[in-house]
Lab assay of single mutants.
Amino acid sequence: VTLFVALYDYEAITEDDLSFHKGEKFQILNSSEGDWWEARSLTTGETGYIPSNYVAPVD
Rank of each mutant, 00 (worst) to 15 (best):
Y8W: 13
I13Y: 09
V1T: 14
G34V: 14
L3Y: 12
N53F: 09
L3H: 10
D17M: 15
V5W: 07
T14W: 14
I13L: 13
D17S: 15
D17N: 14
A6V: 01
D9H: 05
L7F: 04
E24S: 04
L29C: 08
Y8S: 07
V55A: 04
D35C: 12
V5M: 08
P51V: 02
L18Y: 04
P57Y: 06
W36C: 07
L18S: 01
T2K: 12
S19P: 05
L42G: 03
Y49G: 04
D35L: 14
V1F: 13
T43N: 09
E24H: 06
E46R: 15
E33M: 15
V1H: 14
P51C: 08
T47M: 09
T43V: 11
E33Q: 14
T2H: 12
I13H: 12
N53S: 15
T2F: 08
T2M: 12
T14Y: 15
F4G: 05
N30Q: 08
F20K: 00
T14A: 13
P51M: 07
W37Q: 03
S41R: 14
R40L: 13
A56W: 09
I13K: 14
I13R: 14
S32W: 10
Y54I: 06
L42D: 04
G34Y: 10
I13M: 14
K22D: 02
G48V: 02
W37E: 01
G23T: 02
K22E: 07
P57W: 06
E24C: 06
V1A: 13
S31T: 13
A39W: 01
F26D: 00
E46K: 15
S52F: 07
E11M: 10
N30H: 08
L3A: 06
A6D: 01
E15V: 11
T43R: 13
E38V: 15
K22N: 04
S19G: 07
E15K: 14
G23E: 04
P51R: 08
S19D: 05
R40G: 02
T14F: 15
N30P: 04
K25D: 02
A12M: 03
V58R: 03
V55N: 00
E15W: 08
W36Q: 07
F20N: 00
W37R: 03
F20D: 00
F4K: 03
T43C: 12
A39N: 00
G23Q: 02
S52A: 13
G48Y: 02
P57I: 09
R40P: 00
D17F: 15
L29G: 04
S32Y: 10
L18K: 02
K22T: 08
E24A: 05
G34W: 11
W36R: 15
S41E: 03
H21T: 13
T43P: 02
E11L: 10
N53C: 12
D9Q: 04
A56S: 09
E11Q: 12
P51D: 05
Y10I: 01
H21M: 11
E11P: 04
L7D: 02
A56Q: 10
H21V: 14
V55M: 09
R40N: 04
A6P: 01
S52Q: 06
V58M: 12
T44D: 03
T14I: 06
A39H: 00
P57R: 08
K25E: 09
G34C: 11
K25A: 07
G34P: 15
E24T: 07
S41H: 07
P51H: 08
F4Q: 04
W37H: 04
S41W: 01
Y49S: 06
K22L: 06
E15H: 11
V55E: 01
D16N: 15
E38D: 04
G48S: 01
A56Y: 08
T2R: 07
P57K: 08
S41V: 05
E24P: 00
Y10A: 01
L7V: 06
L18R: 02
G45W: 07
Q27G: 03
T44E: 01
L18P: 02
E15R: 10
A39I: 03
D9F: 04
F20W: 01
A56R: 10
G23R: 02
V5L: 06
A6Q: 00
L18M: 13
D9K: 04
I28G: 01
E11F: 10
S19N: 06
Y8K: 08
T47N: 05
L7N: 03
F26L: 09
E38C: 13
Y8R: 07
V58A: 10
W36F: 10
I50N: 00
D17L: 12
S52C: 09
D35H: 12
T44F: 02
V58C: 10
T43Y: 09
T2E: 12
E11G: 05
L7E: 04
I50K: 00
N53D: 09
A6M: 01
L7K: 05
Y8C: 13
V55R: 00
K22Y: 06
T44C: 04
V5Q: 08
A6F: 01
G48Q: 02
T47W: 09
F26E: 00
E15S: 13
S41F: 03
F26G: 00
D35N: 10
N30K: 09
K25M: 15
E46W: 08
P57D: 04
L18N: 01
T43A: 10
E33W: 12
I28L: 06
L29Y: 06
G45M: 08
D59H: 13
L29E: 05
S19A: 06
A6I: 01
E46I: 10
L7T: 04
K25S: 06
L29I: 11
H21E: 08
E46A: 13
S31P: 10
S52W: 08
E11W: 10
I28W: 02
S52R: 13
V55D: 01
Y49D: 02
F26K: 00
Y8D: 07
E11C: 13
K22F: 05
W37S: 02
A39D: 00
V5T: 06
Q27D: 08
Y49C: 09
L18A: 01
I50C: 01
G45E: 05
F20A: 02
R40Y: 09
W36Y: 11
E33D: 15
A56E: 12
G23N: 05
D17V: 15
T43W: 11
L42P: 02
E15Y: 09
I50R: 00
D35M: 13
F20H: 01
Y49H: 08
D16L: 15
E15Q: 12
E33C: 12
I28M: 04
Y54W: 06
Y8H: 08
S31E: 09
